[in-house]
Amino acid sequence: MTAPAVPLDAPRSGPLSGIVVADLSRVMAGPYAAMMLGDMGATVVKVEHPSGDETRGFAPPLRDDVATYYLSANRNKYGVALDFGVEEDRQTAVDIIDRSDIVIQNFKVGGLRRFGLDYETLSAERPGLIYASISGFGRGAGAHLPGYDLCAQAVSGLMSIQGDPDGEPYRAGFALFDVFAGMHTVMGVLGALRHRERTGQGQEIEVDLLSSGLASMANQTMAYIGAGVVPQRMGNEHPSLYPYAPFRTADRDLIVAVGNDRQFRTLCAVLDIPAVADDARFLTGPARNEHRETLRRILEPRLVTAGADHWFDQLSARGVPCSPINTIGQGVEYATRMGLDPIQYAGAEQEPTVRHPVTYSATPAGYELAPPTIGQHTDAVRAWITQTTTKKGTE
């Protein structure tokens, strides 16, 4: 076990400096939420079983024998290894929570009750505690179901709208609902912090993958709720906008994403087919949707006269949204060229990591700590417990 390069009581630069988070979660949604809070300056203590977070074994790929999956959601945390079935370790967890403003956990619904680490038990003596519980399908009829992202993608309907119209359903290429649930957890925590600031009262917030996913599908979910329309697979096409899809060029596909009539008129001008913008079949968005195949047969012969990069330059210069289809590597390189600094380096180890997505003019996000090894800071956290007073019941 090693001492952290940044002591637990060190002031942080972010907007949540002074806030302490007990991260009892694992895999993606909870750890991602805790990492976002840590980026914003909160002191985050990651509590793992001695066997470690499962994502440590989600490999390949690896960086220095550590799964990059784990690295993606665990920077800016102090790592503690505790077995709640051992009383000394359980008490250490209680001591951490006593000094925390926020608990994040994604154990099976009710799974922490036998250790006295559930919200009802903890809040009885800690009225200011904010307790974020993440599950797959809530604490009602779905409480017994494992909260796996792929299962949530399937049952929510997301997979039914992914893929070619005549092909099989597809999952998203990453743990989409886990990440959305993590972001919604951060949103809920920030709202609860504001409520506590006004009233002194903490609360439990609940986030589940299914609700998070349904909310995040936004217009697609609303199509059913508001109009009784069940969205279907459309490949890379949009149900409400056209042209809003990949189009062939001389060398590779180019995304053209026209969002209004003005952009469509500009597209036609750049392609030297201005009369098309005045064709009654294409004058409005609904009209273009109705005649999308006809319009594709007009646009593509013009687009195949030059390469994707040529059209990207020409159309972008005129304000028409478009993009080549990049690899992840090319996406990172593009963000670098845009001055977005997508790669940041965490901790004294200078562990490469993905930049926090929010830019603060006064309280920038930090990257003080690399993702911890199992129990890396257990001794330091126990020393911090000895040296600090509790926050229990003081808010």
Rank of each mutant, 00 (worst) to 15 (best):
I97V: 15
D178Y: 09
A215Y: 00
N236A: 14
V20E: 02
R252A: 15
T55G: 00
T185L: 02
E54R: 04
Y334G: 03
G235R: 06
V207A: 02
L8G: 06
V80F: 11
L145Q: 09
A143R: 13
A362F: 00
D261N: 15
E48C: 06
L150W: 06
A29I: 12
L209I: 11
A132W: 06
V270K: 06
I104N: 02
A81L: 07
P7R: 08
T92G: 00
Y119M: 03
H291D: 06
L369F: 00
D98S: 10
H238R: 02
L176R: 01
Y367K: 02
A308E: 15
P364L: 08
F180L: 14
I205C: 03
D118M: 01
A143F: 11
R198H: 15
L190P: 01
G347I: 02
D149V: 13
E333S: 13
A380M: 06
P165Y: 08
E87H: 03
Y345W: 13
G393M: 13
R281N: 12
G307N: 13
R382Q: 14
K46A: 10
L117G: 00
A287D: 15
T266N: 09
V229M: 09
M222T: 10
E197L: 06
G116T: 04
V94E: 11
K77Q: 14
M35L: 10
W311G: 08
P50I: 09
A250P: 00
G188C: 05
A5Y: 10
G38T: 04
V320I: 11
R56L: 13
S240C: 07
K77Y: 09
V6P: 02
G147A: 01
A346V: 01
Q376S: 07
S323K: 00
R297L: 12
P60I: 14
P352N: 10
M159G: 05
A81V: 11
V276Q: 06
D379V: 01
Q153R: 08
Y78N: 00
I19S: 02
L37G: 08
M187N: 15
R126V: 03
Y224Q: 11
Y32G: 01
R196K: 02
S72R: 04
Y69H: 14
R288P: 03
F312R: 11
Q330A: 14
Q153E: 15
V44S: 08
T294V: 14
V186Q: 01
A42N: 04
T185Y: 04
N106M: 08
T327G: 06
V320M: 05
V230N: 10
Q263N: 09
L37A: 01
E88V: 13
V354C: 09
A34R: 01
A42K: 04
A175C: 11
I325S: 07
R233D: 08
A370P: 05
D178Q: 00
F264V: 05
E349Q: 15
G18K: 06
E300T: 05
V86Y: 08
K108F: 08
G202R: 02
W384N: 00
T284F: 05
S123P: 00
Y360V: 03
L129W: 07
L254G: 03
G30M: 09
T199L: 08
P7N: 11
K77N: 04
L129R: 04
D272L: 05
E120R: 04
T266P: 01
N106L: 08
S72T: 14
S17Q: 01
D272K: 11
G140E: 13
P372A: 13
A218M: 11
S123F: 10
Y78E: 12
P342H: 03
R337N: 08
R114A: 10
T284E: 12
L8I: 11
G259D: 07
R196P: 05
G85H: 13
